[in-house]
Nucleic acid binder design. Structure first.
Lengths: 204, 204, 204, 204
DNA sequence: TATGAATGAGGCTTCATTCAT
DNA sequence: AATGAATGAAGCCTCATTCAT
């Protein structure tokens, strides 16, 4: 039997999950509290009981994403141990996008794109998420470097930023063209570029 | 004294220009016809006299962008004659973004990111724009190739796609982080990668 | 070669004809000047050049109907010379309704139904039309009476009113049920009732 | 003190009642949600909380009418036990119309007349209402017949249809002419016709 | 005669939120 | 914890009309 606390937490999470999906699918602007309420089969009161406002909900959705990334429970694995893992990291996102018929982009990029000067809090949530992702990617490059597997010119932070911007650009173009081709091209070029920083690569 | 032709066309263009700016600034979803109407100091009726609907306006805004790109009158120059021009192409966009205090992304990416399955017409308008941009970039790479200045492995279409996805990812991250740093990093890495396809580059 | 006057008159008539059809099809409230203008391929200016207002147009449409009834050029013939003609009068309207797939009622009833306390002018136009129709029907009954073919109890004015109300009720029900059955039932019952006023009818 | 159930239902019913009256007075087309909202002193949100759309409201209004007819709580009584009741049925409607100064017709006929090919749902609601009214009238005629009080030629269904079309035609003409005279004429003629189907009537 | 630009009120609906139970 | 009634601003669009050329 569920505890009283758990029952509430469940509702809260159900709302968050539904909202996360709708935000990913159609963006935050196009998603109204009403739509989230209906899709999560909750009541108006519950919604505003758990979330201060729509902005509050977005924040919570992003928190859940952030926790998943931090704890490694996200669909995409951000802890990289090898170049193979890096490839997997890129392609996991491509596969995710394909699973939605190329109708969606990156959930964070989609939200980030809608941010204006009035959405400073959300922008900071996103910045933090990307900061965490970046540091996870950087950790891998730093480890590679510490083991002498990167050329001197390699800059781990720049490489991490490059990865993120590359996948963001790739997925955005994939969504716009509704085709996985550009996405795969971009991912392969990005990987090729990154591998150029490995010692012993033919470009070195 | 205004010509008969100009009377209406002026109003129409005024609306389009105001809308283009608002769409760039806050996205299409966050921009209401009423806001466009007020900012362009027109009447409600005029708006719907010139544009079938909000979607129709977005379409027209994109048409104007497309024409500017095709005719070379856009702020960013898409006709590249040299690697210097390619660098300028990248940096012109970074500068544009900086001129808005890093609060905006690419006008096309911004709209593209908001596209859902119900906005098929707009999606196709954007696809066409990117198609045109791509072919302009490809023309440069093809010319380089034809003059033996690219390594055999170079694929001009892929390179063009890479340029577009790279700048899109860069600008989106620039907008989210409100910092030009990632943008510049991405642009430099992208250029480095592309230059790797030149014959005689140290990586070749 | 058309005279200058004729050209204008033509436009005017084209508008009236298109409007008459739209009013019949969807009523006056659901028909906007814009719709009439577009369907008649005219300009805004022309419309308000020929008609003071939408109300003015309705008035003119009704005038044209009235003239057609008076002059005998209407689709339905109101000059009755025999009981056969009376049957034809009823059935012509049923046929007209059938020709529109039972989606329309009587053009006058449709407009009359929409009349409110603010449409006094239109109401009077319609009253006049029905007055004229009534007197045409009454003329027939009076002639019959004067030739001793009606029973003493027959009242020609009441009989005419009965005809009109019967066909109005019939067509309205036909439109609502989308079926000609009620209409035909009503017409036959009405005819049976009227024939009961003939001398020598079995009911007499 | 209001019960939990009543709180919302009251508002809902208030809106329906106000709407029913406005629809009767000026038709559905001329009645805007805003007008209903104001007249029922509700908020915009409430309106759309209780009704999907304006069409939804019309539907609900008709449902309420239908229930009233079925349950016998309507102003007009449809359960007839005698020819006297049938007369009362006709005259109750005439009196109702008179009580509005002959400015309104039948509430159902008024709405039915405005129905176009895009209002299929409403048309069906009306069809159903008339179906129910018809069967109630038919029940009376069938009972009469079963007791041998109708001539062989009498067809109960046709008689019921005749009643409905007659009163519809009568009320429409009453509204257009703003006079109760035609209405009374029609009602009396209709009754005379119907009585002709009684055994022993002088017409038999 | 003819065209269509311009105006602003209003029509239908959704939004985000608060409140009462 | 949960429900859903209530609110009013705003969003997208059409209407009926007038004005300028």
């Amino acid at each position: 039997m569920r505890t009283r606390f758990a029952r509430g937490a469940e509702t809260r999470l159900r709302i968050i999950r539904v909202a996360a999906d709708l935000f990913h699918k159609q963006g935050v602007r196009a998603t109204s509290p009403d739509e989230v309420i209906e899709a999560s089969r909750t009541g108006k009161g519950q919604f505003y009981h758990y979330f201060r406002s729509k902005e509050g909900l977005i924040h919570e959705v992003l928190q859940v994403h952030l926790e998943a990334i931090k704890s490694g429970t996200a669909l995409v694995k951000y802890e990289l141990g090898s170049w193979m893992d890096l490839e997997r990291w890129f392609f996991a996102q491509v596969e995710l996008q394909k699973s939605f018929g190329m109708t969606r982009g990156c959930p964070f990029g989609t939200i980030g794109n809608e941010v204006t000067e009035n959405d400073e809090l959300i922008r900071q949530d996103l910045s933090l998420i990307f900061e965490v992702v970046k540091s996870k990617l950087a950790v891998f490059f730093i480890r590679e470097e510490s083991q002498g597997r990167l050329v001197r010119a390699a800059d781990e932070n720049r490489m991490a930023d490059f990865c993120i911007a590359a996948i963001q650009g790739a997925m955005l173009m994939g969504k716009i063209t509704r085709s996985s081709q550009v996405v795969e091209t971009m991912v392969r070029e990005a990987l090729a570029h990154l591998k150029g920083y490995r010692t012993g690569s033919k470009k070195a």
